[in-house]
Nucleic acid binder design. Sequence first.
DNA 1: TACATAATGATATGTTATCTCAATAAGGAA
DNA 2: TTCCTTATTGAGATAACATATCATTATGTA
Lengths: 147, 147
Amino acid sequence: MTSTTLTPDVILDAFKENGLRITGPRRALALLLVEMKGFDFTVEQLWDKVLQSDPNIGRATVFRAVEILQDLHLLDRVEFADGSHRFRFCHEAGSHHHHVTCSTCGKVTEIEACLSADQLAKIGLQSDFAIEGHRLEFFGRCSRCRK
Amino acid sequence: MTSTTLTPDVILDAFKENGLRITGPRRALALLLVEMKGFDFTVEQLWDKVLQSDPNIGRATVFRAVEILQDLHLLDRVEFADGSHRFRFCHEAGSHHHHVTCSTCGKVTEIEACLSADQLAKIGLQSDFAIEGHRLEFFGRCSRCRK
DNA sequence: TACATAATGATATGTTATCTCAATAAGGAA
DNA sequence: TTCCTTATTGAGATAACATATCATTATGTA
């Protein structure tokens, strides 16, 4: 449960440690992404920000970087009740957690809760699948929207 | 845990009971959909089938019907590990359950497991959200793909 | 049977993401 | 430092998927 401070280097190191190159666009993205910690964004929104900082960076580069960071578990994909999704750097980046999203205002909150190892094992037996992962999203109304 | 046999009338009655009209296109769709029980499909695939049975039915009509049946909990939306999704009539239509999908072959299996009421309550407290729903998807490899 | 309106179909439009591929640049080797 | 291999990039085309528009049609009830 150690919370690493998110710096551009944390992101860039993640690229390097996975045999990927540290490039100009990736440096620029890393800078922008640390500013967005705790906020959720669509890739389009991120691209808009990128354009402001450097109009020469391509759309595909941003999509590619987001996909990579997602695979490296640095970026979380958060699903909303309407089927849309956004990305975010979470407080406990890399640690296993899930999200509650508010169906009214879109607020996202991280939660620790998950299925127990016991429950997961039962599911594997019941289905005869080797369970490799899961996605768990909660939908509700935040305290503010209930007032 | 009573399993209702899925007939076209089950689908059409669902429309009627919700104040919706039973129309020609909906009759045709109901016929096709019962054939697909237990199979999963994209709306595009369903539309292809519809075109074969009646080329005059419009694309939007199929999308609209799927949305309605999803809202009525007759059709399940199944999410895959790659972010894509398909629809299916499940064996226990209308009952609460989740799915395991095979990341290799795409096979879908229904499972009964879920979070306990206790767990859900804790999540509500922890997040200070009024939890209204959740989505839970499991990913893994089916027995066939492990051989 | 007539009527109010839900539903439809054709198509335009929107949204979101991926593909292509020549040009460029990162970073290990010499 | 310079060279060289190849990962990465950018621009735009293309794809996949879904919704909006709106005049027309057809349902179900009064």
